[in-house]
Design a protein around this nucleic acid. Structure first.
Length: 443
RNA sequence: GUGGGUGUAGCUCAGUUGGUUAGAGCGCCAGAUUGUGAUUCUGGAUGUCGGGGGUUCGAGUCCCCUCUCCCACCCCA
């Protein structure tokens, strides 16, 4: 016998988890579409040269790739942004700009699995291509805020940074060649037992600059204070000033557009990330489970499509990490326990009424209700237990007594009530009854 | 990819310095007179003790290898 198992970092989903995933995806779709983002899809496999060298050496190393049966080097997509760049470069003439799309699909990364980190996971991306307007950056923040709220979260924060801030600061001192090392060091700010200052100096920064950066990083709570300090640090360097001005504008408009100010955190330590980001950078953290990492990240990349076309196609967008979010919700006890999409179980009571049951089930389904007919005339106890275990809320019981009186007993398992509903040939009354019942439980 | 830890019934775990037929709770299944779940009572099934090799008269308990998951690094959703 072959032992049934799945690859490390890959997972099966039970109905309960899958229903939750679908509901999260549906919410993301709804929110994205409410801002006018259009759905697209791209192949899971791309020519390897399309995918390589777009993120960093590290992302290349983590990519799944192989030679296909025709001898072509192909890769499995590592994220949805690089395929998007290829996609717009190829189709921008038909799409027109600005082009707003969303894309919900799995991606693959060959890295070691940890909690909330898998080798196959679904990203829910949304991006705006073809405009440099800061309005698009702002919209990214607004979408993230709406999205998290629609998913049922109140306690989260959106950490915002700008690539030009640190770059400008370093350039001002002629230290831009150290930016990678600085980012790596600064990223460790929250972690215990690490002397970030020492690391910064070791990277090659003069102590005074290192102190400034450290101070900037430690003030992440208060946007106004950080901005003021940042302004001093970047001096009169044009790139740095641009970063400061963008951030100031972004924060102001986000609050004006309705994002609670306490959710917006300026944090220069999130300046790491994929190499293609050039401006605004955001990460989203759940305050009740910060250690699981960002559940929604993104930023502005002004030169991504430039690898595939001479057209100037700047972009800005972010990605919700569906599987990481689900892992967080699981841990926080926020996952619904229903494991069946059925709203109603029609009990199989009397074998001679079989055809009547089938007709009733069809009538109920025709008005949009999810109805499951138990496949065999088992003991009532067993059928009720079946519904209870799957959290199917209602059970219809029609035995010979009910049938003679042309009525149905409706038992609600989540409450302790059992109603009697009249049966008619067209099923109208019982359909109305359930539509009414499910309408009121939803609101 | 590197380093550390972990792995006993579906789940959470117990299992004395290696010694006979490996346990608990929960869950699951079946019953408690004929048509009612989640509560109660009674009974029942379940594990090649992650897998492979070794040491030993004898290993769930010791050693090696491998896989898994967790944690850290790296990186990131």
């Amino acid at each position: 016998m072959i032992e049934p198992r799945v690859l490390s970092g890959f997972r099966d989903f039970l109905p309960r988890e899958m229903m939750q995933r679908q509901s999260l995806m549906e919410t993301a779709r709804r929110v994205y579409q409410s801002f006018g983002f259009a759905p697209i899809d791209t192949p899971t496999l791309e020519y390897l040269d399309i995918l390589l060298g777009k993120g960093s050496a590290e992302t290349d190393r983590q990519m799944y790739h192989f030679i296909d049966n025709g001898g072509r080097p192909v890769g499995m997509r590592f994220d949805l942004t690089v395929p998007l760049a290829r996609y717009v470069a190829q189709h921008i003439n038909q799409l027109g700009t600005p082009f707003k799309r969303y894309h919900i699909a799995p991606v693959w990364r060959g890295e070691r699995q940890q909690r909330g980190r898998y080798r196959e996971f679904v990203q829910c991306d949304f991006d705006t291509i073809g405009t440099r307007s800061l309005m698009a950056d702002l919209e990214m923040i607004l979408v993230i805020n709406e999205l998290l709220m629609a998913l049922g979260f109140q306690r989260f924060c959106i950490r915002i940074n700008h690539r030009k801030l640190l770059n400008g600061m370093l350039a001002q001192k002629g230290l831009e060649q150290h930016s990678v090392g600085v980012l790596r060091a600064i990223d460790k700010l929250g972690k215990p037992g690490i002397d970030v200052l020492a690391e910064l100096i070791q990277v090659g920064l003069p102590e005074s600059v290192a102190r400034d950066i450290l101070q900037l990083g430690q003030q992440q709570g208060d946007p106004a204070g950080v901005l003021e300090l940042a302004e001093r640090c970047v001096g009169d360097h044009p790139v740095g000033r641009e970063g400061v001005a963008d951030l100031r504008e972004l924060l102001k408009s986000a609050v004006a557009a309705g994002v609670p100010a306490e959710r917006l955190v300026l944090d220069i330590s999130i300046a790491r990330g994929l190499d293609y980001y050039t401006g605004t950078i955001v990460e989203t953290q759940l305050l009740d489970l910060p250690e699981i990492g960002s559940v929604c990240s993104g930023g502005r990349y002004d030169n991504l499509a430039g690898l595939y076309t001479k057209q100037d196609l700047p972009g800005v967008g972010a990605s919700l990490g569906l599987d990481r979010l689900l892992a967080a919700m699981e841990e926080l006890g926020l996952v619904a326990d229903q494991s069946s999409p059925a709203q109603i179980l029609l009990a199989f009571f009397e074998p001679q009424l079989q055809l009547e049951y089938l007709r009733l089930a069809r009538q109920l389904r025709s008005v949009g209700l999810n109805v499951e007919f138990y496949p065999e005339p088992a003991k009532l106890k067993k059928q009720l237990k079946y519904a209870d275990q799957r959290k199917i809320p209602a059970v219809i019981l029609i035995g010979s007594q009910e049938w003679e009186q042309q009525q149905a007993a409706v038992k609600w398992l989540d409450r302790e009530v059992q109603n009697t509903v009249p049966l008619t040939a067209d099923g109208r009354s019982i359909c109305d009854y359930f539509q009414q019942a499910f309408l009121s439980t939803k609101s």
